[in-house]
Design a protein around this nucleic acid. Structure first.
Lengths: 161, 161
DNA sequence: CTGAAATTTGTTACGCTGTAACGGACACCC
DNA sequence: GGGTGTCCGTTACAGCGTAACAAATTTCAG
């Protein structure tokens, strides 16, 4: 099994987060440029809010944060921006939480598997291709053609056990 | 790999569904009795509505169906009943759809993996213990302790391809 | 440049999903 | 048959998400 399945590990609660953010922003700019799409100030702001921690953020939390810098933002502003970022592969939605989180490795196409700490809320992102292949095998057994995977595991991270 | 991972296969659109329903009801009664809990008329009705097809049902659809036989039911009636059935392991929630579906094999403790047809809406339920073990292995690598899995695969069933 | 077309964002209004809190009804058990 | 706990009804509201249309901004051909 390859070692590179961890896309975004649980970060120690103290780490150089400015570095994470800077990396993510650079990647986002690159991805948008490559797709011929615009990384507008609004999109950048929402993206930064999502990367302000390694925890998922809810849409209405984003809205509240936006309200600090913008004038009376409304839900569609946030949801449209999230849609854009998701289509660009820069953000994932966690269905089990109705919350959103920055993708640890945009550019490469993947669905991702998420480990969500129930205690501190921090999320790790994996991409185990062997696992994906096994799901595909199971699907084939019953004649199913896979389009999309939602894999979200909740439990406790090392620090919270 | 064992053959018994398919808990609930995609049923042909024409099959003896009365049989599915009867089996499910018998199992539900057994599970409730064993847990020392009551399978009340309301719970039975909701359960039957969930088993009226092999497709997931939304809470407000259940509410509308209930309205045909009950007097002005309100959301808490449905959600409480769904909570009960989920805790008893008789029903699963599909997070990616905000919808609910009868469990194909209550009694045995499992989380289940779901294959959801985007076209006809029918859902198959699997329980691949090898897959679960692999997720556990991945989790252990980053010091994560698994409590709960959400695995929902969307795509096309054989008949809809 | 400049005006037309396309994209992005603002705004209003609303629909769907889910829960808190309280009170009444019913089953169960001594 | 009275007390206790479970179940259900009811009201009210909080959280999640979208439709539809208007205004602003960017882009790009001419």
């Amino acid at each position: 099994m390859p070692d590179n399945i961890v896309i975004q590990d649980f970060e120690p609660h103290e780490h150089d987060h400015g570095h994470c953010m800077a990396d993510a922003l650079r990647e986002a700019e690159r991805v948008c440029a490559q797709r011929g799409e615009r990384f507008t100030p609004l999109r950048r702001t929402v993206f930064e809010l999502l990367w302000s921690s390694h925890k998922p953020v809810k849409a209405y939390e984003l809205l509240a944060q936006l309200a600090l810098t913008h004038d009376r933002p409304a839900p569609p502003t946030v949801y449209r921006t999230l849609d854009f970022l998701q289509e660009a592969g820069l953000v994932h939605k966690l269905e089990s939480l109705n919350a959103y989180i920055g993708c640890g490795e945009p550019g490469r196409s993947h669905q991702g598997q998420f480990m969500i700490c129930e205690d501190c809320g921090v999320v790790a992102e994996l991409d185990d291709e062997v696992l994906t292949a096994m799901i595909d095998t199971n699907a084939r057994k019953i004649g199913f053609k896979v389009n999309d995977e939602t894999i979200e595991i909740s439990g406790l991270c090392r620090q919270c056990q």
